[in-house]
Amino acid sequence: MPAARTPRSRVSAWLTVLVAGLVAAIVVVGFWRPWATPAATVAAGAGDAAVPLTPAALELPENPTVLIFGDSWTYGSAAAAPTLGYAYVVAQLAGWTTIVDGVRGSGYLKPGIDGPDFGTRIAALDPALDPDLVIVQGSINDRKLPADGYRAAVDAAWDDLATTYPRAQIVILGPAPQVLPVEAATARIDRDLAAAAAARGWWYISPLMQDWITTDNYAAVIDTGIGRFHPTTLGHRYLAERLAAAVGALTR
């Protein structure tokens, strides 16, 4: 028995529907741009709709001064020497002068081993530093504390930071996973920080969403022994490379 054939008119109609569907999909993806950094949302007045706004490209001078503020990862924990930590190495890679302010164990809510919480530390920063760029890293250290009050602590700390350095451009570097799979509380912190940064029109870099640390490179990047789940020396260099590339991509 000969194979059944679809009438030519039906084939033409089916192709028309298919092409139309593909065009619509391309338009939707082009508008959504899942590969792009999420747009910030600017709060509108009462009765007005929120206006999406992509953060402005960073404008940095040649050899900028960059304050890198964070926790033990910024301190350089588990590197052969703290000065081999990512916050120091990125200066060599990117041509920056970095001012490194890392306190082990600290977070927006949690006091650290060598100093207080982020908000208290930011309030004590020297305005005379006058950096061109401030990068605030982390922190996973708040993951074991209740979520209540977290966003308020973040907003208060960032308000002080913007007031202390009104000329500086600010980039938020979210938490990176010290264990895989990523802990639910770490993912929640990442989402909270991303939303807070978007509300201000600040750039947010998410090592979680950008897969900086995966099952393929975890053993090389993270010291699970004496380093107590901090980056190895090679891991710190890898993080410095990723950070330099990420900031470079945001720079005019």
Rank of each mutant, 00 (worst) to 15 (best):
V134W: 05
K144Q: 11
L84D: 15
I68C: 13
Y108I: 03
D155P: 00
T164N: 04
V66Q: 08
A94C: 06
G112K: 00
Y75W: 12
D148K: 10
G138T: 04
A78T: 05
P82E: 08
D126N: 12
D71R: 05
P146A: 05
L161Q: 12
W96L: 04
D160P: 00
D71Q: 09
L125F: 13
I68G: 15
T74A: 14
P175D: 03
P64Q: 10
G174T: 02
T98L: 02
V100I: 07
L145S: 06
A147G: 14
P116W: 01
T163A: 15
V66N: 08
L125N: 14
T120F: 02
L145V: 05
I68V: 15
A153P: 00
A157E: 03
D132M: 06
L93G: 08
D117Y: 01
P116H: 04
A152P: 00
T98H: 01
L145I: 05
D117G: 10
T74G: 09
R104Q: 11
G174I: 02
T163E: 13
W96N: 01
A87Y: 00
Y108P: 03
G138P: 00
G102N: 07
A123K: 06
W73I: 14
G95N: 04
Q169V: 09
I140Q: 11
G115D: 04
A91T: 06
V136A: 15
Y86H: 15
L145P: 01
Y108K: 01
R151D: 15
L129Y: 05
Y88R: 13
T164C: 05
D148Q: 09
D101N: 11
A128T: 13
S72T: 09
L173H: 11
A91K: 03
V136F: 07
S106Q: 07
D71Y: 02
P166E: 10
G138N: 06
P64C: 10
L67H: 12
P146C: 04
D148G: 11
P127E: 11
A94Y: 01
S106H: 00
P175I: 01
R167A: 15
W73T: 15
A81P: 00
R167H: 14
T65E: 12
A162K: 09
A80W: 00
P131N: 10
G85R: 02
P127Y: 07
S72N: 10
K110Y: 02
I113F: 08
L161F: 12
A80L: 03
L145F: 06
V66H: 09
G85I: 03
V136E: 06
A153I: 05
N141R: 01
A176Q: 05
Y75F: 14
K144Y: 09
V100A: 06
G149V: 04
G70F: 00
G119M: 01
P166R: 08
T65S: 13
W158C: 10
Q92P: 00
D117E: 14
V100L: 06
R151T: 15
D160F: 03
V90W: 03
T74Q: 07
W73H: 12
W73E: 10
R167Q: 12
Q92Y: 08
A78S: 15
Q92N: 13
P82H: 08
G149E: 04
P116D: 13
T120C: 01
F118L: 08
T65M: 09
G119A: 05
L67N: 11
N141C: 01
V103H: 09
A87W: 00
D159H: 08
D160K: 10
A128I: 09
P64F: 05
P131W: 06
L125Y: 14
L109A: 14
L93R: 12
A81E: 10
